[in-house]
């Protein structure tokens, strides 16, 4: 009961320390980058042929969003850029990606950026060599290009829609009338709440609190990113070498002529040894994948546990906030939720 009273008091009395419409420039939208989809085919019989190592892919899906985030941050063109565990549909600009291909040579990501209105800014595959950031910079440029097509009014509309979608999730009874979801899954603002609407202030305050926790989760993932970077670079280097070995070996076999008589011991041995070396190289690669997972596994587990705790806390609060807001709405308007 006491906790309930405190939460109500916070919602009613505390100053709006966080505001979605702060001193940002209209162009400086906040960006949420969701953890990537590792892109692991369900049919596990294809994994070996496609050279997909599921546990490594999972680590990549946690790590690569940070590389993207760093590139976007370095542009100094955006508001807060957060890596979030799940898709945040109310984000001003939400980015999510799927790993299409990741070997030592090439990284291909299907990246989609959607704003709060449901308008798709970018949705295509970006590819590049894994040892530089051309893929991310190309995506970042696409994002800026998409933004440049929008005027200030449209950008403000995104921020407002974002807040209203967030508010609608928390207090549907109070905010359902403000937004309209169109058949194509886009959102249109039907009308705006009054600038001094106490419910909006509360929503902004709650969102601010949620941002604090999102940032805590984000900080945890950043720790992971720092831990993974060195080992991941090693992994990519090994895979590059493996790919290079495969190419060279293939070329050597194609261009060299065997002088061993067919059916002779030397001839049989030559054929067997070629296959053996190729398989042993593949085994070595699988061993690297296990080594990578062994090395990063404890870190990943610890961070995932911590993130789950934080998320659990937020979810718990979220349910509580929803209930309290519904009660406040009923008190203030006399309309039941």
């Amino acid at each position: 009961m006491m906790r309930f009273i405190i939460v109500v008091l916070v919602l009613l009395l505390a100053p709006a320390a966080f505001s979605a419409t702060d001193a940002r420039l209209p162009t400086e939208l906040n960006i949420s980058i969701a953890m990537f989809d590792p892109g692991i085919p369900e049919d596990r019989s294809t994994h070996r042929d496609l050279q997909i190592f599921p546990r490594v892919r999972k680590i990549e899906s946690l790590y690569l969003p940070f590389v993207l985030r760093n590139v976007l941050t370095s542009q100094r063109q955006w508001g807060a850029i957060r890596v979030v565990p799940d898709s945040d549909v109310a984000a001003e600009l939400l980015i999510y990606g799927t790993i299409v291909r990741s070997d030592g040579d090439v990284l291909s990501l299907q990246i989609r950026a959607v704003d709060a209105r449901g308008h798709v800014w970018v949705d295509r595959v970006f590819s590049g060599s894994t040892d530089n950031q051309e893929l991310y910079t190309e995506f970042a440029a696409s994002l800026l290009a998409a933004r440049s097509m929008l005027d200030e009014r449209a950008l403000r509309n995104i921020v407002e829609t974002s807040l209203l979608r967030y508010a609608q999730q928390l207090a549907p009874a109070a905010f359902d009338a403000y937004l309209q979801q169109n058949p194509d899954d886009t959102f249109t603002i039907k009308r705006l709440p009054a600038s001094n609407d106490p419910m909006v202030e509360r929503i902004e305050r709650i969102r601010g609190v949620e941002y604090v926790f999102t940032d805590a989760v984000d900080a945890k993932f950043r720790e992971l990113s720092a831990d993974v970077a060195t080992v991941y670079e090693l992994w990519r280097e090994y895979r590059r070498k493996y790919n290079q070995f495969q190419r060279e070996e293939s070329l050597r076999v194609q261009t060299s002529k065997s002088y061993a008589e067919r059916g002779s011991y030397e001839g049989i041995l030559e054929r067997y040894e070629q296959y053996k070396w190729d398989r042993q190289a593949a085994e070595e690669q699988e061993k690297w994948a296990v080594g990578f997972e062994n090395e990063m596994g404890p870190t990943i587990t610890a961070i995932e546990e911590r993130v789950a705790e934080l998320e659990g806390w937020v979810e718990e609060r979220y349910a509580e906030w929803q209930r309290i807001l519904a009660e406040l709405f009923e008190l203030e308007t006399g309309l039941p939720d």
Binding site: R44, R48, V253, R271, Y275, R279, Q280, A282, E283
Partner: peptide, 22 residues
Amino acid sequence: DDFTMLCEFYDGYAKRTESEFG
């Protein structure tokens, strides 16, 4: 001193492991 022989079966069906060498 040799490669690891590999047999793959998915849903009861054998799957080939192949390369340009065999």
